[in-house]
């Protein structure tokens, strides 16, 4: 059996009367892209936040690398190797591309408590950062401030930062949100190559990208997983067509 990296087991989370996550179970296995889809308000972001450690589940269990992470906060989970990107671009706006990725590299290496040497004068660190910048197709843009980047570039910068952590799993929340067709194609190509480095739990609204990339898909609706399976199984699933793909089919 393939190794399970991340396991969400019967997790529930309610906000008052709203059941944002209702007995959700899913797993992420080595080498795969597992897409999580569902309409707005289905509870995808709530689930991601619980996995990353921003929210505490009311009940259920989350295991990462075979370890119950209930007692760990976001920082400890990141250190364990959970590489995350946000739904809304979260980069350090005043920093350049290189500074942003160097920040991630020094986070991964635990070398942030040095006061006198230059952050950008350590060759080993900057080389590691440049490598990830190249991989995210941002070569030549190292000295550009994040706030001056185009939207698609900023999303790839986030990916470069996640890559620099050398994570054991990626948690990507709508990496293609707001991108044009070219941007989506470029990001799809990038993510396709990443699954062998670390498995990806991908939340995404762009169905073409999801169907092109995912090994497995889980569908979330009103806080519940209503279907889980391969791309073909999901395409054929009647409840999924009704809940989520219906409009697309009619069009």
């Amino acid at each position: 059996m393939t190794e399970t990296i991340l396991k969400v087991d019967n997790v529930s989370k309610a906000f008052g009367a709203l059941r944002a996550c209702d007995r959700v179970s899913l797993d992420l296995r080595l080498g795969e892209i597992h897409a999580l889809i569902g309409p707005n308000g289905a509870g995808k972001s709530t689930l991601i936040k619980q996995i990353a450690g921003n929210l505490r589940p009311d009940s259920g269990r989350i295991e990462f690398l075979g370890r119950d992470v209930a007692a760990l906060d976001t920082v400890e989970r990141a250190r364990m190797g959970l590489g995350r990107s946000f739904q809304i671009s979260a980069v350090i706006a005043e920093f350049t591309v290189l500074q942003n990725v160097v920040l991630a590299v020094q986070g991964a290496r635990g070398t942030s408590f040095h006061f006198l040497r230059g952050a950008l004068s350590d060759r080993a660190v900057t080389e590691a950062a440049r490598l990830q910048i190249e991989r995210a197709h941002l070569g030549g843009r190292e000295a550009v401030r994040a706030s001056d980047l185009a939207h698609g570039e900023r999303r790839r910068l986030e990916l470069a930062m996640a890559l620099a952590l050398r994570p054991k799993a990626f948690l990507l929340d709508e990496p293609m949100a707001g991108m044009g067709a070219d941007g989506v194609a470029e990001m799809t190509g990038l993510l396709d190559g990443l699954r062998h480095e670390a498995p990806i739990l991908l939340v995404e609204h762009d169905m073409d990208a999801v169907f092109a990339l995912a090994d497995r898909i889980s569908v979330l609706d009103y806080g519940q997983i209503i279907a889980s399976g391969t791309v073909d199984e999901i395409r054929a699933h009647p409840e999924v067509r009704r809940a989520y793909l219906g409009e697309e089919d009619a069009a």
Partner: peptide, 14 residues
């Protein structure tokens, strides 16, 4: 310009 300064400035922004 140190790694610490970089991280501190980053924490101020995000």
């Amino acid at each position: 310009r140190s790694p610490f300064g970089l991280a501190l400035n980053a924490a101020r922004q995000n």
